[in-house]
Simulated scan of single mutants.
Amino acid sequence: MARGTEPIDLTVEEYVIRRLSRPDAVDLLVDESAPRTEELRAKAVALRSRIRVLTDAFADDDDADAAGFKAATRRIKARLADVEAQMACLQRARILVDIVTAEDCAKAWEDLMLDRQPAVVETLATVAGRVRAGLDLLACPGEHAVQGVGAEAGADRLP
């Protein structure tokens, strides 16, 4: 643990354990607003295909406008990035299930591999401040806060 980060590490850990110990923590495993995986995969495949078709058309047309090609490619890639971000959202249940379903959330947190702890924290909160390397999500020197995301934003703000 880096010098001077222990208080924020403990604050983050306390937030995670407290949030995942609540009776409604199981609700975090379901995101009704998230599109289904199959729909997102189909969109991603279609967008990648459009990029390939656009690239092939550009390569075959000696008179094609390079600026137009770049602009169209950039727009499609931006849409693809949005779809991929939505797909990442669907990973929330996989990330949280071991702790949410555990009888002892604190023990389940301690038992997590260090590389999984940041994923849990990132799923639940935005962290500002210096924390140990395993939990360094957003470094803002001199500022220490844990802000819950979603419905619990503001309810679990810790100094």
Rank of each mutant, 00 (worst) to 15 (best):
M1G: 11
R3E: 12
R3A: 11
T5L: 03
E6Y: 07
E6I: 09
E6H: 09
P7M: 04
I8M: 15
I8C: 07
T11V: 09
V12G: 02
V12M: 04
E13F: 01
E14P: 02
Y15G: 03
V16L: 01
R19M: 03
L20R: 03
S21Y: 06
S21W: 01
S21Q: 04
V26Q: 15
V26A: 15
L28C: 04
L29T: 05
L29P: 03
L29N: 12
L29A: 12
L29H: 07
V30S: 13
V30T: 15
V30G: 03
D31I: 12
D31Q: 14
E32W: 09
E32P: 09
A34V: 12
A34G: 10
R36K: 10
T37R: 08
T37Q: 07
E38P: 04
E38R: 10
E39V: 13
L40Y: 13
A42M: 07
A46E: 15
R48W: 00
R50E: 05
V53N: 02
L54Q: 04
T55W: 03
F58W: 10
F58V: 08
A59R: 14
A59I: 02
D60F: 12
D63T: 14
D63C: 05
A64K: 04
A64L: 12
D65E: 13
A66N: 09
G68M: 06
K70E: 14
K70Y: 04
A72D: 08
A72F: 00
R74N: 05
R75H: 05
I76M: 06
R79D: 15
L80E: 13
A81D: 07
D82G: 13
V83W: 11
E84R: 14
A85Y: 00
A85S: 10
A88T: 14
A88P: 05
C89G: 12
L90D: 07
Q91R: 11
A93Y: 10
L96D: 06
T101I: 06
T101H: 07
E103L: 02
C105V: 15
A106C: 04
K107C: 00
K107A: 10
W109D: 01
E110F: 00
E110R: 06
D111H: 09
L114W: 08
L114C: 01
L114H: 05
D115C: 04
R116S: 08
R116A: 12
P118D: 07
V120I: 13
V120E: 11
E122M: 03
L124R: 01
T126K: 10
T126D: 15
V127K: 01
R130W: 08
D136R: 08
L138F: 06
G142W: 13
G142N: 13
G142H: 11
E143Y: 11
H144M: 04
V146K: 01
G150V: 06
A151L: 12
E152D: 15
A153E: 15
L158K: 03
P159T: 02
